[in-house]
Amino acid sequence: MSTSSRLANSEPRWLRRVLIGTGLGFLFLFLALPLLAVFAEAFNGGWSAYIEALKHPEALSAIGLTLFIAVFVLPFNILAGIAAAWTIAKFDFRGKSLLITLIDLPFAVSPVVVGLVFLLIFGAQGAFGPWFAAHDIKVVFALPGMIIVTLFITFSFVARELIPLMQAQGRDEEEAAISLGASGWKMFFRVTLPNIKWGLLYGVILANARAMGEFGAVSVVSGHIRGETNTLPLHVEILYNEYNAVGAFAAASVLALLALVTLVAKTIVEWQMRKETEMLDAALPPEAVRNQE
């Protein structure tokens, strides 16, 4: 799918320029400038102050904790996301719109409220809090609470990414596999997973970015214990409030960089994905592709 083959039905040159200009101008104002401002503040005290801020034990422990939580929630997000997408994309049943809405719901709950909600359950004055306290199990103001809250806010991403993809792919390939006698699991690992693997990764990467960057919800259940339950976004806020702008923005820039790392990963993923589809397109004549649908 090269650009030249599209020339016949592409926009006139001036319009293309206007669109590119508009799109890039918008991104520049809303994304690039803020990013630039973050780095400008971070390097306000020079390179050495920047490094110094990041080498601080509390900063290192915050980075470690943030990465740990992000990695920990991955398998849960993958499993739940695939299950939800499989249910919704491959079957028809009553209440499907309701189910999709419930999956969207975590997006709409204010982070402020997410934390509060889990305190209502696990907090010392909450529904199950006293039971956990009696058994000496720490949920909130400790790692488990922070993980649960992160699971809540990242739940929707994988499913939301997979549903349109799986719907577009339809059921034919899987149905063929089953009718040829494949078991359910075999069908899943041989047919479904290869089809959705790149979309899955895409969802995971988005969820990952959100897991690392979340402040509001995690803040409520973290307890803010330095070097222990402080994640990177919490560390940023606390440094800022203490009039340590360089430290705060240096930590924030690390988050931006971590996002860029996942974005590089995503770029590679997308590139691979494109290569695969191109190979597929090349292997099958267009008519075959259309007949297959």
């Binding site: 509001g216 988050l255 974005l263």
Partner: peptide, 19 residues
């Protein structure tokens, strides 16, 4: 430019607000 688009997810909201 494409990779910039996800930035708002990764940047803590407070940093976004202050900036």
């Amino acid at each position: 430019v494409d990779s910039l688009v996800d930035l708002p997810f990764a940047l803590p909201t407070a940093v976004a607000g202050i900036t």
